[in-house]
């Protein structure tokens, strides 16, 4: 019963934080500096790990699928499998998971620390709403950076698949042929579907991590607990939302 209460309370406070943050949208232009800083933290610092992971996800996908497809003599279609998988599913989901682990945890830790050391209370007494200064720039930044990260993830993943497809003996498909099949079967709508998913996942991850950070109570030990909770809740939400969004989009 207590856990159900906690879930409902978390759900309610997250919605409330969203509404409060959006009510300050008009202040975004004068928070441009904070927005750029968050774009840097969310986008630029996450980019290398997104690129590395996407490369190997594309590679492993080509390798695993290549062996099975070769049994049926269909390995020439490997480009379509890697292209669609990365664009519709693995690209957005993996980028969102990385965002939760790298950026979400950092956001939760920073805001939880500010809460525990009364910096958030200090903002409130100054009549500076934390939703405006701490949450809104992050939400705006993630909306801008998620598509960028996902597109880069997709491209690098496709590229990784192409390299494996060419240099693995049992597959041995030339990049021209690989990308021709990929282009034929991966449509613009598939990429857009993936980007829509990425936007939703990224937005939810940042919102949930901000909310958990700002609702931290107690001493320094609670900062660690909040970070763990933020990452776990984000991962669960990404996968649950993925199922329902996929149902809607297909």
């Amino acid at each position: 019963m207590k856990q159900l209460n906690n879930i409902l309370e978390g759900f309610g406070s997250t919605w409330l934080l969203l509404v409060r943050s959006l009510s300050y949208t008009a202040t975004l232009p004068r928070q441009f500096g904070r927005f750029v800083e968050q774009c840097y933290l969310i986008g630029y610092t996450t980019l290398p790990i997104v690129a590395i992971l996407s490369f190997f996800i594309g590679s492993v996908l080509a390798l695993q699928a290549g062996r099975s497809m070769q049994d049926f003599g269909t390995q020439q279609f490997i480009g379509s499998l890697v292209g669609l998988s990365m664009a519709r599913e693995l690209g957005p989901v993996m980028v969102a998971i990385l965002l939760a682990g790298r950026v979400g945890s950092a956001i939760a830790a920073e805001l939880a620390s500010m809460k525990v050391y009364q910096e958030v209370d200090a903002l409130e007494t100054m009549n500076i709403p934390p939703a405006r200064m701490l949450v809104l720039p992050r939400l705006a930044a993630v909306l801008v950076m998620m598509p960028v990260l996902t597109i880069i993830g997709d491209l690098v993943g496709w590229f990784g698949g192409a390299i494996v497809a060419k240099y693995t003996k049992i597959i041995s498909i030339e990049p021209e042929s690989y990308f021709a099949v990929l282009r034929h079967y991966t449509h613009f709508n598939d990429v857009i579907n993936g980007l829509m998913k990425a936007e939703l996942f990224g937005f939810v991850v940042v919102l949930v991590c901000c909310n958990i950070g700002l609702n931290t109570r107690g001493g320094p030990r609670e900062i660690g607990a909040s970070v763990t909770r933020a990452v776990v809740v984000s991962l669960i939400l990404i996968l649950v939302l993925d199922y329902f969004v996929t149902q809607v989009l297909t």
């Binding site: 009364q118 910096e119 209370d121 200090a122």
Partner: peptide, 9 residues
Amino acid sequence: LVFQSGALF
């Protein structure tokens, strides 16, 4: 409010 810890950013 001047907090006990200062609550400086």
